[in-house]
């Protein structure tokens, strides 16, 4: 007699998948496979435009963001010789540091002020050893803020003033973009360009190349000597940012003002009691 093990084997051997069942299954799978392939194709076709638009959006955002961040909306020109100009974006970050002479290049290289707030950049410049040495040697520093938004200028200038308040011989003022462009064409920073214009009015033979290597103190002394022809001699500026109230200037106006002030000094003396006049009026 057959063992139970063999009986189980023989029984299950007689159970098998019918051909009809296999064919039905194959047909079903073939149908499903076609459907999946069609769906996959559809998905691929739909995906291309979506992918392109997504890529275009990303590119637009990237380029737009880059443009917004890396476009300077204001410039800060700092002249003492070294001369450097800081490009400031709409988020008040310094995005470029340009130099207009070798000294400026050395200073620009030594400063690490890119992508930080302009006020912090000015503070670092003012604390730079070379700058503090020059200022203590009685050199003159001019800081010009150039841009097109007056409200923003005023705020920037006021911030800059707060960092230069402790410095003698430092002048801050507004400037306009057209003048800045003209200065760049001559290869000068804005502060030197304004000084050059003043100097040129007194001495038409002066060239931008000559100006480039001079310090602001030297230029001012030259202007003073030419304009006054020795009268009064070079003057030392006291206090900071005299022209910060607005308008264009170069710091030289301060000297003129002072000269005018000096010039009106005698009439001031007329305020003192004049016995003759008094006697006339009394009469």
């Amino acid at each position: 007699m057959m063992g139970l093990n063999d009986r189980i084997k023989e029984t299950f051997d007689k159970i098998y998948a019918e051909e009809e069942l296999k064919e039905k299954t194959k047909k079903f799978l073939s149908q499903k496979t076609q459907e999946y392939k069609k769906d996959y194709k559809k998905r691929s076709i739909i995906n291309y435009p979506a992918l392109i638009s997504a890529a275009a959006c990303l590119l637009f955002l990237f380029l737009g963001g880059r443009w917004i961040y890396l476009t300077p909306t204001a410039e800060i020109s700092i002249d003492i010789n070294p001369s450097i100009e800081l490009g400031v974006n709409r988020f008040d970050k310094v995005i470029s540091v340009d130099s207009y002479n070798d000294d400026g290049q050395t200073l620009a290289d030594s400063l690490n002020i890119k992508f930080i707030n302009y006020a912090e950049a000015i503070r670092r410049i003012m604390e730079n050893e070379r700058i503090t040495d020059l200022l203590s040697d009685d050199e003159i520093m001019t800081i010009a803020v150039v841009g097109s938004d007056e409200k923003r200028y005023a705020k920037m200038l006021s911030n800059i003033k707060s960092y230069t308040a402790g410095q003698r011989n430092t002048h801050c003022y507004f400037a306009d973009s057209a003048e800045m462009a003209a200065a760049h064409e001559m290869g000068l920073s804005y502060g030197k360009y304004k000084a050059f214009l003043n100097l040129q009015a007194l001495d038409p033979n002066i060239t931008p190349e000559e100006i480039q290597g001079m310090t602001m103190r030297e230029i001012r002394d030259l202007i003073a000597s030419l304009s006054k022809d020795g009268e009064g001699g070079p003057q030392t500026e006291n206090g900071s940012c005299p022209n910060s109230g607005g308008g264009h200037g170069n710091g030289y106006g301060r000297q003129r003002k002072r000269k005018r002030k000096n010039a009106v000094t005698p009439p001031a003396q007329t305020h003192e009691p004049n016995p003759n006049t008094n006697s006339k009026s009394n009469k």
Partner: peptide, 30 residues
């Protein structure tokens, strides 16, 4: 197919269910 058919026999109670299982299992494989 034969192995699956025998397993269906062990578990299931009608032929329609066996067809369902065949389709489910082989589709999963595909």
């Amino acid at each position: 197919s034969n192995t699956i058919r025998r397993l269906c026999m062990v578990h299931l109670k009608n032929h329609a269910d066996t067809e369902d299982i065949f389709q489910t299992v082989f589709l999963k494989y595909v």
